[in-house]
Amino acid sequence: MQSIVAAPGAVEACGLTKTYTFHAQAAGLAGAVRSVLRRRYETRLAVDRIDLRIDRGEVVGLLGPNGAGKTTTLKMLSGLLYPSGGELSVLGFRPSERKSDYLRRISLVMGQKSMLWWDVPAMESFLLHKEMYELSTHEFDRSVAELAQLLQVEHLVDVQVRKVSLGERMKLELMAALLHRPEILFLDEPTIGLDVVATARVRSFLREINRTRGTTILLTSHDMDDIEALCSRVLIMDHGRIGYDGDLGELVRSIRPGKLVRATYAKPIPAGTVVDDLDGAVQVVEVAGEVLRLEVSRERASDALQQVIRLGPLVDLDVTDTDIDDIIRELFSRESG
């Protein structure tokens, strides 16, 4: 008789928990003196018994407000932090043991921490990775050429890193992280501070790497567009818990089906101006001076915009999805309610 066993996921976590201990100190001189004489320690739960499974080849976004626990989760998965509790397996390894065979199969890119030496060209750091990951000269040359071409940085690999722009540096960081062809790529805010062009390049590069190499990608970002552009699945965290695990579009539609419209007119909006609610599809959020804010259903967005244009000469018009922080707040207030 044959038994059917599920293939191991790239990441499997069960009850994963992390607590931090820190000393609390009241503000001011008196607080500082009291802290010297009698120190008070507090414990904070950063990640609270999360269960998680990510399959090979998936691109998963980890979303959440500041302090939600997403970076802590990423650090536990990459082996930087010891979990305080629970079980964690990544590619069959326990990350906190930081075994060499494990570290050769993963990569972590932190938007605000550089893996490159700043005072010498990026190629010096790449050559170091060649030794660390034991790449043959052929593998190394092929990887450098392929990645440099995909990221369009052929002309930058021999330039002192401190002389390149932020966006260019991020591309070089990604190159360094991918030279050894990791099976899992952890990305922490990969597009933070980048301009529109660099952001688009990085996103298309990550899509390409996932498609051609089958690299599993787990990324955190505050940028909703990053997640929308890259992730087939999102995990939304708050207060150390995963509040949602699934498709982002579905989440947005289920919580806030509408779009936000912000119209700024050349003159103040006259008192008593009537906005047709289009059978309940339009809701006025705010009228203040020259600014009108509406929430409109996706299906009637075009009708609502025509109405907005007819109200007077416009200076600015902004149509956006609901802010992710609002969605997260709403999601968690529903849970706790």
Binding site: K75, G79, R98, S100, L103, I106, S107, L108, M110, K113
Partner: peptide
């Protein structure tokens, strides 16, 4: 400052 992280994630 957590800069040790950049060495901890590499196999050396």
């Amino acid at each position: 400052l957590g800069k040790l992280s950049i060495w901890m994630i590499r196999p050396a």
